[in-house]
Design a protein around this nucleic acid. Structure first.
Lengths: 143, 143
DNA sequence: TATTGTTATACTCTATAACTATA
DNA sequence: TATAGTTATAGAGTATAACAATA
């Protein structure tokens, strides 16, 4: 069994890289007038516009009550509206406003630009390899 | 120029993986009675025991005032002591107590065990490759 | 004046528990 | 009773600004 390699442990290196990348991404989103949670919410809504808030929270990876907080801000910022589903009045349908659509497009552009920057100097094989390795790390901690 | 690959963008995948891995690591540290900031502080202190708080904050990657908050908790938990440097009384020397030493060893063991789990099924080339790719991502956003 | 560190305060993201409305 | 969502509250981690102590 080989000894572990030198330098900081893998988990710490991953965390440090993710921190640096996430900060840069958050700055890019902020420059486009957004934030990470609002971006994740808008992206999920554009993917499945009719999701209930429960589905939406699960898609974003947060609790329902946490989602409510973000939706409150987004609604008071005029990005989304909530109305009851006539078919089941317990369910609130979340929909993008015109302004929400524009915000989504601005953030998407920022995200695409950021991802291009992130990939600089990586060819397709590098990206595939990296994604594969990341998936294996996740499997190792989730198992 | 090839189109970007399908699926979530690279930055999002990195963030998601890092979130899952970080949560698992935080749980492992918590089970050992620690937390991420206290682990980073203790690790930095063991590496350079005489660092001033400014150096320490920089090593951990946080602001000086933020470090003070963590040191306050750690001091009231009996893990560290602060005393003025006789040579320059502006500087506070941070030192581990006996209890701090024991906490460090518990957390280190948890971290080593975690890293072993994280590497499951990865050979040394995989790890090297992953570290290389992470470094390139970081360089891309820092540049 | 400059440097080191602390205190006061606040922000963001998150969570849990108790609640309301609906079924 | 069960489900969808909200409100109230709290906690962790972070930051900035104003301050005290020291040089």
């Amino acid at each position: 069994m080989p000894p572990p390699p030198a330098g900081p442990p893998l988990g710490l290196r991953l965390a440090n890289t993710a921190k640096a990348v996430s900060q840069a991404f958050d700055e890019a989103l902020a420059a486009a007038g957004g934030s990470r949670p609002s971006w994740l919410v808008l992206m999920s809504l554009k993917t499945r516009p009719l999701a209930s808030q429960r589905e939406l929270a699960a898609a974003v990876g947060i609790q329902g009550a946490t989602l409510t907080q973000h939706l409150n801000s987004m609604e008071s910022d005029g990005l989304v509206t909530r109305r009851r589903d006539p078919a089941n009045r317990r369910v609130h349908l979340v929909e993008l406003t015109e302004q929400g659509e524009r915000a989504f497009h601005r953030m998407r552009e920022a995200a695409v630009t950021f991802d291009r920057r992130l990939r600089t100097g990586l060819d397709r094989d590098d990206v595939t390899q990296l994604e594969l390795l990341l998936d294996r790390l996740r499997a190792n901690v989730n198992g």
